[in-house]
Design a protein around this nucleic acid. Structure first.
Lengths: 197, 197
DNA sequence: TGCGCCTGTCAAATATTTTGAGCACCCCAG
DNA sequence: CTGGGGTGCTCAAAATATTTGACAGGCGCA
């Protein structure tokens, strides 16, 4: 048996986190103090790393185990969700210029994205919030609808400011960026499939 | 190198969780579908289990990875903590008669218990809340001070109702139990060393 | 083109974990 | 006391993960 967990894709998750940190396998390996091949093997799910190994690697990403497995947290059953049923993903979303963005962008997920293969988020951007250029390679499609405020969305070469009632939909592989250009907060309801996290 | 993680004691944590679930190593092993020796080896920190293995074991305890590593979550630095800095432990505390107690007892931790080797909690018992007989074997000492309401505390053979201003302190190895006998909520500030979770 | 540097992957040797059986101990009923 | 059933721990073989160094492809630049 090649003990690979089916439910939660460790490899994909690590890959996403690493990409988000803009690190190569080798860079991460050095930070974490593990051989570089290790990263490759784990990301492609060809081994189920030991806790100690995973922890070392996570150290290089400044993440805790809890952070890493947060997505696995039991989600409310549904199909209906109250205000408090939304799952806060903020800490998990690897916003590129994360230095200054702390606490300025909030993502809350509706239900169990993985099970439904659909990730719906309620996103709140405080004034000035900016994801920076997101070059995350999730092979997904994502869309969103602006509820409040004004969101500048950049997709590849296209840029546009979206106001309440306006929306977007594109292939996630295209580098994209979200920026709140409103002086108050901007609220968006978005969807992504398959789920990013 | 015998890759054992120093920071977060996996073995102790698993032991605590297993005890809380009132399962023997063999019982848990069967539920989880792993050999019983595994449990022993992990609990004594003589191996750092693979993610897939740990997940299997956790399944037998009805826990997710996120639950298990929740304690490792980055705690606020301190030495001062605002209202929102307290860490909610409610989901992690294995209250014995947990069936009915859902949402009726709240535990919030102050700062990083593990680092300071001191776990301070703000506990809120809703009307009727009862921990049931807690036969948790933590080799700790714990104390508490009642802020509001009325708490019936049972320690071994001793029983007493504590009102605001009253307090308790005892060896945690003695079976104990907390019960809110007030018709409103009861609030307690407690401490435990070394930390239970 | 060819050099240098980067990327990620692969294969073989080594180290660790996992496995299943067996051991010692304790408790209780016969 | 003796057998049955429980507890957790130990051991050696088998399976897996980790490590190391080599490899192929991409990219920029002389």
């Amino acid at each position: 048996m090649t003990g690979i967990a089916p439910e939660f894709d460790i490899g994909a998750r690590l890959l996403a986190m690493r990409r988000a940190a803009r690190l190569s396998q080798r860079q991460l390996a050095e930070r974490a103090g593990v051989p570089h091949a290790q990263i490759s093997v784990i990301e492609t799910n060809r081994s189920s790393p030991s806790i100690s190994t995973l922890r070392k690697i996570l150290t290089g990403l400044n993440l805790t185990m809890a952070d890493f497995f947060d997505g696995e947290r039991a989600a409310p059953e549904g199909p209906f969700f109250g205000r408090d049923d939304l799952i806060d993903l903020t800490s998990k979303v690897p916003v590129s210029g994360a230095q200054d963005m702390e606490g300025r962008i909030t993502f809350r997920q509706i239900g169990d994205a993985r099970r439904n293969n659909l990730q719906m988020l309620h996103e709140v951007y405080e004034a000035g919030a900016d994801t920076g250029e997101t070059r995350l390679e999730h092979f997904s499609n994502e869309g969103g609808y602006v509820i409040e405020g004004a969101l500048e969305v950049t997709v590849g070469e296209d840029v546009r400011v979206l106001c309440p009632g306006e929306s977007y939909l594109f292939d996630s592989r295209i580098p994209h960026r979200f920026r709140n250009v409103h002086d108050g907060r901007t609220v968006v309801v978005s969807a992504c499939t398959p789920p990013y996290l």
